[in-house]
Design a protein around this nucleic acid. Structure first.
Length: 425
RNA sequence: GUGGGAGUAGCUCAAUCGGUAGAGCAUCGGACUGUGGCUCCGACGGUUGCGGGUUCAAUUCCCGUCUCCCACCCCA
């Protein structure tokens, strides 16, 4: 049997209804904040991600689905292409390619699949879905304002509330400018050097490869040491510090609760200043529903003009996993099951179904070969409100037996009044 | 990529010491030819994830492999 490839999965009804509910709600929220949809390709040139996300990141160095184009044209041959592992680089590429700075401030959202070649586990798939938003434009259009950061965070709080997720936590930090991070990194290495041999094996490795990660250590014995290490907050320059402060003050003004986490870092190279995550229990080790931050230097890194921006990516799979159990039944059930009874009745049933569907009723259609009992069972099974019997007697009288399945109440109703009856509760 | 656990009918799970693979639910049919849900009866359903090995005999023991789950790593 051919199975779906590792780390991919089929979304089936009724789960798809839940996904559609989430996406419809998300679109409503974006509309209120004047965000507009952008759709970019699902694969891009490999170079885009190498430069945009960063050669040294895990994503680029070992998680991308990459192949070489076999195109016949010389210009295509050997072109290295990659299934997008994230969406920000592609959107910034589109910003540059279409000279979107001419439009001032761009507020985009996008929903679609991303691909990373990781080992799957709960809430982590090789094809997964992200709901992205990006605010990008020239600084003169206000793209660098802390007001944009706060608006994004307030939007997210609204969005999670609207889809029905409770118990989320907003974790907030500022990772400063690249220069701040260089200074911090150096200070961290210096602080670790004399104590690292007293720490666990993982930390000893992290101290070399990625000192930030030492903060993630869960070994109790290491905590006193970690408490003494410097945090990025001490290394922010005045402008970054002021920016961060203003973001927090606006959040206070709009009453969005947040937790400052000076140890929060993000894995993609392009982040500057504001960095954030919304976390949720019940997701196992992958507890981040979404993450994001500011990327003031990304456009230039990709060969574009200066264009500060901020964005986020929601893991839609994780968002759905975080929904309360009460969110399960959002499927609209049929209003009526039409039961043709006996030879030649399919034709009349089809005409009736067509009429009723024009009134925006949800109609399921049986088959004339079914015994009436079987039609009833089928109508029950799909949860239809009514069953409509189309037999010889009904056709002759041009009036049909309509039975309410839950109450058992049955009436004979003239054809002309059918739709009205079905529409009225 | 590393470590651990699990894989038996569509689903949830049994199967004693290695001895011909079973139940509930679901599906289909019948009791019941134009009136459902309940009940009863019956049927269908399996290369025990896949491949190899040991054995008279493997769902069971061994090896490999695939997938999922958990953790690491990392991220959404």
């Amino acid at each position: 049997m051919i199975k779906s490839p590792r780390g991919t999965r089929d979304l089936l009804p009724p789960d798809t209804a839940l996904w559609n509910f989430v996406e419809a709600t998300v679109r409503d929220v974006f509309r209120a904040y004047n965000f507009h949809e952008i759709r970019t390709p699902i694969f891009e040139s490999t170079e885009l991600f190498a430069r945009g996300v960063g050669e040294e990141t895990d994503i680029v160095s070992k998680e991308m689905f990459t192949w070489e184009d076999r195109g016949r044209a010389e210009s295509d041959k050997g072109q290295s292409l990659t299934l997008r592992p994230e969406n920000t680089a592609g959107i910034v590429r589109a910003y540059i390619e279409h000279k979107l700075w001419e439009r001032g401030l761009n507020k985009f959202f996008s929903i679609g699949p991303m691909f990373r070649r990781e080992r799957p586990q709960k809430g982590r798939y090789r094809q997964f879905y992200q709901i992205d938003a990006e605010v990008i434009g020239p600084a003169s259009a206000g793209s660098q304002s802390p007001a944009r950061d706060a608006e994004i965070l307030e939007l997210l709080a609204t969005l999670l509330d609207r889809v029905g997720i409770t118990g989320w936590t907003l974790e907030l930090n500022s990772v400063g400018c690249p220069a701040d991070r260089t200074k911090f990194n150096e200070a961290l290495r210096n602080a670790l050097a004399p104590v690292v041999d007293k720490m666990c094996a993982d930390c000893q490795r992290r101290a070399v490869t990625n000192p930030f990660r030492v903060f993630d250590c869960k070994v109790p014995e290491d905590q006193p040491i970690i408490a003494t290490l410097p945090t990025i907050a001490h290394f922010l320059d005045d402008a970054c510090r002021a920016h961060y402060k203003e973001v927090k003050q606006i959040l206070n003004a709009v009453e969005i609760p947040y937790t400052e986490n000076p140890r929060l870092v993000r894995g993609l190279d392009y982040y500057t200043r504001t960095a954030f995550e919304f976390t949720h229990g019940g997701l196992g080790a992958q507890n981040a529903i979404l993450g994001g931050g500011r990327y003031d230097g990304l456009s230039e890194a990709l060969g574009g003009p200066p264009a500060p921006g901020i964005g986020f990516a929601i893991g839609e799979d994780r968002l759905v996993l975080s929904l309360p159990a009460s969110a399960e039944s959002v499927v609209r059930q049929p209003d009526v099951y039409i039961a043709p009874l006996g030879p030649g009745m399919n034709r009349e049933a089809a005409r009736l179904a067509r009429e009723l569907r024009r009134h925006d009723l949800v109609v399921e259609l049986g088959d004339e070969s079914f015994r009436l009992k079987k039609s009833f069972e089928a109508a029950d099974k799909i949860g239809s409100r009514y069953i409509l019997i189309v037999g010889e007697n009904e056709v002759a009288a041009n009036a049909f037996a309509l039975k309410h399945l839950a109450s058992g109440e049955q009436v004979t109703i003239p054809r002309a009044e059918l739709a009205q009856k079905l529409l009225s509760k």
